[in-house]
Every structure is written in C-alpha cells, then in structure tokens.
C-alpha cells in the first residue's frame, strides 16, 4: 500500500494530463486548471518544508564545533535578515530588502557566474586535444565560432560571420536534432513507464 497508492495516483494523473491536452470540453479544462493550482500549492508547501530543513541543518551545524560553524552562522544571519527586512519594510522599490538583494546577493551571484569564464578557458585548454581527425575538426570549428561570434571575426574576414552562421545553423543543428530525438525517445519511454507504474525509483522503490 505504501507504494501502490502513489503509483495509482501517478498513473491516473499522468493519463489525465496527457488526455486533457486533446480534450477541450469545459469540465476537463476546469479540472485541469484546478490541477495547475494544486501543483503550485503543493510546491509552496514542499518549499516551506525545504526552508525548515535548511534552517534546522544550519542550526545543527552552528551548534557543532568545527569549520562549518562560521558558515552556518552567516547563513542563519542572512535568512533572518531578509525575513525581517521583507516582512518589516516590504520588498518594493526603495526598500531595504531590495537594496540588500541588489547590492549584496546579486553581486555575489554574479561573481559565481563569472567563474564560468575562467572554467570555460581551463576546460577548453584541457579538453580540446587534436588526438584524431574528428577532434581536429572539432577544434577548428571551435576556433572559428570563438572568433566569429565577436567583432574580431569580422575584422579577420567579412566571410567569417557567414561561416559561423552556417556552422551553427546547419551541422550543429543537425547534430543537436539527432541527440534531441534520442532524448525525446528516452523521455517518452520513461514517462510511459512511470504512468504505467513500471518505473518506481522516484518512490524509493525498485522497478517491478
């Protein structure tokens, strides 16, 4: 019963969500709207559980001696600060909440995002090796795209942007479509297995 009921619910709603796509009758559309509302409600409840989970874990870490203690303290302070600012003075334009968001959180996140520039360079240096003809071809394409996507490409030759466009829109799209068809098939098969109750790993149960 522990897994049977969720499997039945999943199967019923899976079939309903697939069927409603083809049915325009009002009762079905109304039910579909109700399902969408419930999806949001369930997600917000799960989010609350998640936030509680984070707070409890950080409290535990803060109570334990060790290097994590400082990080946990900062995390708890951050959570408390944003809650107090948000509920106390609102989140609109000119609020302290928005100021902290724009001037503390956004720059910190942008900093992490900017790591990509360094990691792309490091991974490209390490990963792009002309070991055989195909990988040499890949490197040639990478170099053309790298230079052709910025004004330097146009300065080298006026044909470079056209070549870049062709590489991106013809061979790259062809390869992507082939991969996407494979992925689409995988998703289709997984979805059917889940709806049919054959795949239950998401419930902590083995397949049957």
């Amino acid at each position: 019963m522990r897994t049977r009921l969720p499997v039945i619910i999943c199967g019923v709603f899976g079939v309903f969500m697939a069927a409603q796509y083809f049915i325009t009758a009002e009762p079905v559309t109304a039910m579909y709207r109700a399902v969408l509302d419930w999806m949001q409600i369930i997600f917000v409840c799960a989010l609350l559980v998640g936030i509680l989970n984070v707070i409890l874990r950080q409290l535990k870490s803060a109570a334990r001696p060790g290097p994590d203690r400082v990080y946990a303290g900062i995390a708890l302070f951050g959570i408390a600060l944003m809650v107090v600012l948000g509920f106390g003075w609102g989140i609109g334009r000119g609020s302290a909440f928005l100021w902290v968001f724009n001037n503390v959180q956004a720059p910190m996140q942008t900093t992490v995002f900017s790591l990509l520039a360094f990691y792309v360079a490091s991974a490209a240096y390490r990963g792009f090796r002309a070991r055989h003809f195909e990988s040499a071809l890949l490197i040639a394409a990478a170099l053309i795209i790298l230079l052709g996507r910025v004004p330097i490409g146009e300065m080298i030759s006026s044909h470079v942007p056209a070549v870049v466009s062709w590489v991106l829109n013809v061979p790259a799209v062809a390869a992507k479509r082939a991969i996407l068809i494979g992925i689409g098939l995988g998703m289709t098969a997984t979805a059917i297995k889940v709806i049919a109750g054959l795949e239950r790993a998401y419930l902590g149960s083995r397949t049957r």
């Binding site: 490209a124 240096y125 792009f128 490197i139 170099l143 790298l146 230079l147 996507r149 910025v150």
Partner: peptide
C-alpha cells in the same frame, strides 16, 4: 574569446 582560442592552440 581570443585568449581562449590562443589557449586551445597553446594546449
């Protein structure tokens, strides 16, 4: 972009 291209060639 130019730096990454040079790094790939250098590698």
């Amino acid at each position: 972009h130019l730096t990454i291209a040079i790094l790939i060639i250098l590698g």
